[in-house]
Structures are given as C-alpha cells and as structure tokens.
C-alpha cells in the first residue's frame, strides 16, 4: 500500500516532464548530436535566458523544426547561423559570430582580465617594497 502511494506520488511529480517537447529526432546519431548542439546554442527570443532547446514556447518549437529541416537539407552550421542572424540578429546566437559589431563582446573578457592582472602586479610590487614589520606589532599596524 505504502509503496504504491509512493510510486503514485513519484509519477505525479514527474508529470511536468511531459511538457518538454524535445522536438525532432534523427536516425543518424551524428545528425542528432549536431541538432542537439545547434539548438542549445540558439537563444529563445521570447524567453531570453533560455536556449530553444530548453524552451517550450511556440517560437522555440518553430525554430527547432526549421533547424531540423535545414540539417536534413544538408545545410552547414554557418548557413543555419546566417539564417538566424539575418532574421533575429546576432542576439539569437549564444556564441555570436566574430564581426565588427560583436568584436567588443569577444575581446572584453581578455581586456578586463588584463586590467585585473596589471592591478594585481602593481599591488604586489607595492606591497613587496614596503618595509617588513615586526611580527609582534602585527594587528596594531595601519
């Protein structure tokens, strides 16, 4: 009795999983893997912090269907990315293409890391040049 109640509850808890529409399937595992990778790299424009793989709004389903169709037609990843960018803009891609407009996005992390590194070196140099204080005085310094 107890077991069947637990089983029933577990089944009920799993119900929302039915809402996930994983969309298209391919017989060829390579194409399937490509499809899965592509849809996880496309932003859902209706629900902007989800990929179209994770989202079950209608537009995401449309785009999954369209991407599956393009894969079946033998289009390359670049052609599929172009299709999305001409319609929805660079923002649709989680990994934007390298171009004048998106250069900032690509180099900003390195520039920020460099600024941090320079700051760090300066602080370390400065600290290293300070006179070594007596251990006994520690805590009262400053």
């Amino acid at each position: 009795m107890k077991r069947s109640i637990v089983a029933l509850l577990a089944a009920l808890l799993a119900l929302p999983a039915l809402a996930i529409d994983q969309g298209e399937t391919f017989d060829d595992p390579d194409l399937q893997a490509r499809y899965e990778r592509l849809i996880s790299e496309v932003r859902c424009l209706q629900c902007q912090n989800q990929s179209i793989k994770d989202s079950n709004v209608t537009l995401a389903a449309d785009l999954r269907r369209e991407i599956a169709r393009m894969i079946e037609e033998g289009q390359t990843d670049a052609e599929i990315a172009d299709f999305l960018v001409t319609r929805y803009g660079e923002f649709a891609l989680y990994r934007p293409q390298m171009s004048g407009k998106t250069l900032m996005v690509w180099i900003a992390p390195f520039v920020l890391a460099l600024i941090g590194l320079i700051g760090l070196v300066r602080v370390i140099r400065h600290r290293a040049s300070l006179p070594i204080e007596d251990d006994a005085k520690e805590g009262t310094a400053e």
Binding site: L59, L63, T86, Y88, G89
Partner: peptide, 12 residues
Amino acid sequence: QNRVGMDWGVYG
C-alpha cells in the same frame, strides 16, 4: 504556420 513571421524575424 509562422512562415512569413519567421522570415520577418517576428518573435512576439
């Protein structure tokens, strides 16, 4: 079917 909608980049 969202044919033209997709071509026009409609998302909401």
